[in-house]
Design a protein around this nucleic acid. Structure first.
Length: 578
DNA sequence: CGGACAAGCTGA
DNA sequence: CAGCTTGTCCGG
């Protein structure tokens, strides 16, 4: 007799079934089965074997064995993650399972010729993998090759590699295969991974992929938002990978050019040598636009030079979710929150209408914080015009790229939203036309996301040795993000960011959950009136509540104790936006 | 989720 | 009061 968790959205409950003798050999914890439930057939996973029969209940037999599913330790990991992110096990087990039924495994691939011996391993990676803490964050600059890092890990045994995107995983896999290593790219090659490939690689779902005989786990670009699942449960791949490695007793290394404060709180930091780090960040030119007219000064002389004869140039313009910025008419400074540094907007009510921070809601009188002037002007980019104007300035064709546009235009100069950075190959220069939208984004991870953009740009143009250029136009030229990138020193931003998080009670200082949806009021009302020490709940007034706890354990236990009412309820633990 | 069944609403 | 909609419950 086995216990089965049905793959049905609203059911987070297990049911017991008899195993027909004919199927007995194919059934273990994790196996995907079909069961008769309430008059219909649904899929599910075996979650326990040898269940003691309950009294007085006629059990139905399993209808069918669908095929291989996640290994027993992954089923346990899913239970842990369901607790950690207040989600359903079924949604996590789906991620951990093959997309198509796997009836049998292919023969185990030969590991291939993994170069071993002295001189083959990246010394920084070796130090990270052998860190006594069992886990480490390895800071390697953007242009540092990741192929050799994976190779060095593969030399120590079977390795699970998690990347923020599928194309990145595919590209690394091609390089590894060329080197003769056996690779399984998940989710497509789930069965090959289960059969025992030397490297199992994929996007965030790879944190759940099969990898028998796992020797180490490597997460690449650990700062990237792509490692977090957008829909609830909002699990984060490096957290899952770390927990999996801990349970398996193997090391986990998270590699990133710009580790977030959350990563730095999670594991000890290992850094490459200063010269390696400097060489791996592109030269960054900061163009101070404070003296330019906010309405006309979109194109600095340096920008015009670059698009005229800068080879392949990509111009990034953030036109989506573009908030209006206020600029001082006297000194050119951008209006920012005096408490947290995010961009402020002007309210319509009040006399005079006050400035309000989009991040921490602090309000202040409408004066320039730099020079005291009352002349604050709204700055809006004429985005639709930018492509045309650049084409006129450059004297050569300019193509437009966004997430929605079709094939890549055949032009040496491209203008696009951030999506363009994910779609182009190597280029000679990247220009951020108006970086202040990024620098001052009223999101709690805004500054880190801005540095991540500069890191991505650095990778596209190659490191300092390739003479690629990254150009940033800004009215906040001394922002920590820019200083960090200019100096190839991400620790700088991490230090200041750490202070902001402590002051505002944000992660990693505190653990957060955002509760929303029609059922949210009932759910919130069912929380104990006397919250555990250090916890608080704040309503937004728009049907969502922010729950704050000293750490994830307290937060998860609290969410677990509340009554989950019927109806739609979204619980976002570690929300990307608050 | 989706079927079963109960409780409410409507119109001749 | 049949016939239908809407709500609540529960599954092995």
């Amino acid at each position: 007799m086995v216990r089965v968790l049905p793959d049905v959205g609203a059911i987070d409950k297990e049911f017991d079934y008899l195993v027909p003798d004919a199927l007995a050999g194919d059934v273990r914890v994790g196996t995907m089965v079909r069961i008769a439930l309430h008059g219909r057939r649904v899929g599910g996973w075996v979650t326990a074997e040898d269940v003691v029969p309950a009294e007085g209940r006629a059990l139905r037999p399993l209808a069918k064995v669908t095929g291989w599913g996640p290994a027993p330790e992954i089923v346990e990991l899913a239970a842990w993650a369901a607790w950690r992110w207040a989600g359903r096990r079924a949604s996590l087990l789906t991620t951990a399972s093959p997309e198509q039924a796997v009836r049998g495994l292919p023969p185990a691939p030969a590991p291939g010729a993994v170069p071993t011996g002295p001189g083959t391993g990246d010394p920084a990676l070796t130090e990270a993998l052998e860190h006594p803490a069992g886990r480490a964050v390895l800071r390697l600059p953007p242009a540092h090759g990741l192929g050799p890092v994976v190779l060095a890990a593969a030399a120590r045994g079977r390795v699970l590699v998690v990347t923020p995107s599928a194309p990145m995983a595919a590209e690394l896999a091609i390089g590894l295969r060329r080197g003769g290593i056996s690779v399984a790219v998940v989710p497509r090659e789930w069965a090959r991974a289960a059969a025992g490939a030397q490297v199992v690689i994929g996007a965030r779902g790879a944190a759940w992929a099969p990898c028998p005989g796992l020797a180490s786990v490597v997460v690449l670009d650990g700062h990237d938002e792509g490692l977090q699942q957008e829909q609830a449960p909002t699990w984060v791949a490096w957290v899952v990978a770390g927990e999996r490695a801990r349970r398996a007793g193997v090391p986990c290394v998270v590699v990133s050019p710009c580790p977030t404060v959350e990563l730095l709180a999670w594991a000890p930091l290992v850094v490459a040598s200063r010269s390696v780090e400097r060489a791996g960040w592109a030269a960054l030119e900061v163009i101070d636009r404070r003296r330019d007219d906010p309405r006309t000064g979109l194109y600095s002389a340096r920008l015009v030079d670059l698009v005229r004869d800068g080879g392949r140039v990509v111009c990034v313009l953030n036109r989506k979710g573009r908030a209006r910025l206020l600029v001082c008419g006297s000194c050119g400074a951008t209006a920012r929150c005096t408490r947290c540094g995010a961009a402020v907007t002007q309210r319509r009510d009040g006399d005079p209408p006050p400035l309000v921070c989009g991040r921490c809601a602090t309000t202040r009188p409408p004066l320039c914080a730099e020079c005291g002037s009352t002349r604050l002007a709204a700055l809006r980019l004429g985005v639709a015009r930018v492509r045309d104007e650049l084409e006129a300035l450059a004297g050569r064709p300019v193509g437009e790229v966004t997430a929605e546009t079709g094939p890549m235009p055949d032009a040496a100069v491209l203008v696009g939203t951030e999506a363009v950075l994910h779609r182009v190959g190597p280029v000679d220069a990247v220009v951020f036309v108006d970086f202040d939208q990024e620098l001052l984004a009223p999101r709690h991870r805004g500054a880190e996301e801005a540095l991540a953009l500069l890191a991505r740009a650095s990778r596209l143009v190659g490191g300092r040795h390739r003479h690629g250029r990254v150009l940033v136009q800004t009215r906040v030229p001394h922002h920590e993000v820019l200083l960090s990138a200019v100096n190839a020193d991400p620790a700088r931003l991490a230090a200041s960011e750490r202070g902001v998080r402590v002051a505002l009670g944000l992660p990693p200082e505190r653990a957060l959950a955002l509760v929303s949806g029609p059922a949210a009021p009932v759910f919130v009302a069912s929380l104990p009136a006397e919250l555990p020490a250090g916890c608080e709940i704040r309503g937004s007034g728009e049907g969502s509540w922010l729950l704050r706890a000293p750490d994830h354990r307290v937060l998860a236990d609290l969410l677990h104790a509340a009554v989950r009412p019927p109806g739609r309820l979204r619980i976002e633990v570690d929300p990307a936006r608050i």
